[in-house]
């Protein structure tokens, strides 16, 4: 398969995985935690490298899941002991991220892992890092990782669909009728961490936040149904990837950057023209 096609597939998988997973964060009003986790997973990746001495996919995912959970746990603990939740997030993520940055220095030149790369990603390099089994190339590692994470996330959402929905809408009632609310919370944190790590190579820690939050926020303006919101976020993620890739080639700019910009443009369009929540129609209705 060609180089271009792999990039497009990777971009679409990032958009789909982050879009669906992130829409849950949007509904739970936890967008800031996406920002936090997207930075702290760096520590997970570095940690995984120290343990396994390689930048292999599965240990990286495990490392990220652990650090993602820790992030959520520390934030929760600080918040419970009286720190404002935005301050708690700020303290936890900068500390863990800083630790990651320091530890990267010890890895040095052994592998290609630097802060610049972690922050910005480079989707154009993705096709070169392929999964080799018995000398046969099976396509880019990123595609396998994203596909795997997408599968796991969709499976978890399918299994706990009702429980996720209720604990998002009315957590106290959920607790009352025996829904494992805390478990669902940390499950979602794992899903966000996995999505982030799988998207790291392609879009980096900063733009992955856009891919997580913006499609969900856009879908929120366009639908009044929970299920529709989930798939629509994924679809908007894919659409952003396609538009982003097209315009990146056309204008000769960063692919990841223009993917993230596309999510922003789609959001603004929805913000203005959404039939029910859009600014324009609201104006028309009130005048």
């Amino acid at each position: 398969m060609t180089y271009t096609l792999w990039i497009v597939i990777t971009g679409c998988l990032v958009g789909l995985t982050c879009g669906v997973t992130g829409s849950l964060l949007v509904l739970r009003k936890m967008s800031m935690i996406a920002d936090a986790i997207s930075h702290t997973v760096l520590l997970g990746i570095v940690g995984a490298f120290f343990v396994t001495q390689s930048l292999n996919g599965v240990p990286m995912l495990i490392g990220a899941a652990i650090v993602g959970l820790l992030t959520a746990f520390f934030v929760e603990t600080l918040h419970r002991s009286g720190v404002q939740s935005d301050a708690a997030i700020g303290v936890v993520f900068t500390s863990l991220f800083a630790l990651g940055v320091v530890l990267i220095a010890f890895i040095g030149d052994q592998v290609h892992l630097d802060v610049q790369h972690a922050l910005m990603g480079e989707i154009a390099f993705v096709p070169w890092n392929t999964l080799q089994i018995g000398g046969v190339s099976l396509g880019p590692v990123a595609v396998w990782m994203l596909g795997g994470v997408l599968f796991v996330n969709l499976l978890l959402i399918a299994i706990f669909y009702k429980e996720i929905k209720l604990s998002t809408f009315d957590p106290q009632y959920a607790l009352l009728i025996g829904v494992p609310v805390v478990f669902i919370h940390y499950l979602l944190m794992i899903m966000v961490s996995l999505s982030t790590v799988a998207s790291f190579d392609s879009v980096g820690a900063i733009l992955v936040v856009a891919m997580l939050i913006v499609p969900g926020s856009t879908a929120y303006l366009l639908t009044d149904k929970f299920f529709t919101m989930l798939w629509m976020s994924g679809a908007i993620g894919i659409l952003s990837a396609l538009i982003g890739y097209g315009s990146a080639v056309y204008f000769n700019v960063s692919i990841a950057g223009s993917m993230a910009s596309s999510t922003g443009i789609l959001f603004i369009l929805a913000f203005l023209f959404s039939p029910r929540h859009g600014l324009v129609f609201k104006r028309l209705r009130t005048t």
Partner: peptide, 13 residues
């Protein structure tokens, strides 16, 4: 619950 305790903008019917 008290009506104000949940987010009535949540996408559901």
């Amino acid at each position: 619950p008290q009506r104000s305790e949940v987010d009535w903008d949540f996408p559901t019917n």
